[in-house]
């Protein structure tokens, strides 16, 4: 029994790590490669989660939909919806300096949360949407956890391969150039505004997918789940700690931070009741402390941005 509980816990944690790794990959596209300071990850996460929920749940007379579609349709819909929301935001905000985007994106994520919370027809207000079907959800509990982990893992690996290819391709080189020196990239003919928008939308789509995976795992989604604390702040820490500009770093960071985050919950749960309120802040403090230590001793993160030029076939200075 003890062992079973442990395995269960590990499965649970692994699924969450995969979901967070998707969010961190999305942020890595935006921040690590394009230098865009998106502080509203929770917003895209929410759009993805709710879109997929609405598309895949059974018909409900109290709200619009559900449409009872296949979960794959829901997930693709989640990516498209997040991308669609990102488009006007990027169009307006990316022209300004990066700090404007940070402020604007916090605000927009908050607006999205409030709309979701107070809007009955589409998102069912504060009660949220329940009975979201989970793929392979109707087999035994443990089997279903394993099956879902497998699905999430496949999605993550696919996303990793797709993103990694873009990064090693001329597209990634161009994005890194824009990040490093905007003026020179413009002078070398790169349409900086358009390319940033591209990266912003690309990243947002992955965040939306992360949201959808979360909603289906949880089988329900409520406005509480869109807490900027866990949906934005944690993801940032994962990326910075893992190494921004490095996709493997993003995934490693997601694993490390999530393990600390959830293990610290076990620890704080043992505290006497009167400390229950403080417990959350103790955990936050732990994460913050860890970020400080990494920034102090390994400012580039656990896995720094690799040199990418020599990844291709030609060996350095081969015949020259």
């Amino acid at each position: 029994m003890e062992l079973l509980g442990l395995v269960n816990y590990a499965l649970f944690m692994a699924i969450f790590i995969c979901i967070y790794a998707l969010l961190a990959l999305g942020l890595n596209i935006q921040w690590g490669f394009a230098g865009l300071f998106n502080a509203g990850i929770a917003g895209f996460f929410a759009v993805g989660a709710y879109t997929s929920a609405i598309l895949t749940t059974a018909m409900d007379p109290d709200r619009i939909g559900g449409f009872d579609l296949h979960f794959i349709v829901g997930w693709i819909g989640a990516m498209l919806a997040a991308a669609l929301v990102a488009w006007p935001i990027g169009k307006i905000c990316l022209r300004f300096r990066s700090d404007y985007l940070a402020i604007a994106s916090i605000g927009i994520a908050e607006i999205i949360r409030l709309v979701i919370k107070s809007e009955p027809a589409l998102t069912n207000g504060a009660r949220g949407i329940a009975s979201i079907p989970r793929p392979a959800g109707d087999i035994g509990y443990m089997e279903s956890q394993i099956a879902y982990l497998a699905i999430v893992l496949v999605v993550l690996i696919a996303a990793y391969i797709l993103v990694e290819r873009q990064f090693n391709a001329p597209w990634g080189r161009m994005m890194r150039a824009i990040r490093d020196n905007e003026g020179a990239a413009k002078a070398m003919g790169k349409d900086v505004e358009f390319r940033r928008l591209e990266a912003f939308i690309f990243g947002a789509a992955l965040m939306g997918l992360g949201g959808a995976l979360f909603a289906h795992f949880n089988r329900s989604i409520t406005p509480e789940a869109i807490d900027p604390m866990v949906a934005t702040f944690l993801v940032w820490i994962m990326l910075i700690l893992g190494g921004s500009g490095n996709n493997r770093g993003a995934i490693l960071g997601a694993a490390v931070v999530w393990i600390i985050w959830s293990v610290s919950e076990i620890a704080t749960d043992r505290l006497p009741h009167e400390y229950a309120v403080q417990a959350k802040y103790i955990r936050l403090f732990l994460i913050g402390l860890m970020l400080q230590l990494v920034l102090r001793f390994r400012p580039e993160g656990l896995l720094p941005e690799p040199l990418r030029g020599d990844l291709r076939s030609t060996k350095p200075g081969a015949d020259r």
Binding site: P170, A187, R308
Partner: peptide, 22 residues
Amino acid sequence: HEFHKLTALENLMMVPPSQPGE
């Protein structure tokens, strides 16, 4: 105005316009 995190080679390779890989 070099692209400081790119290699010297990449600094040159990013220049040609309309590369298919963009």
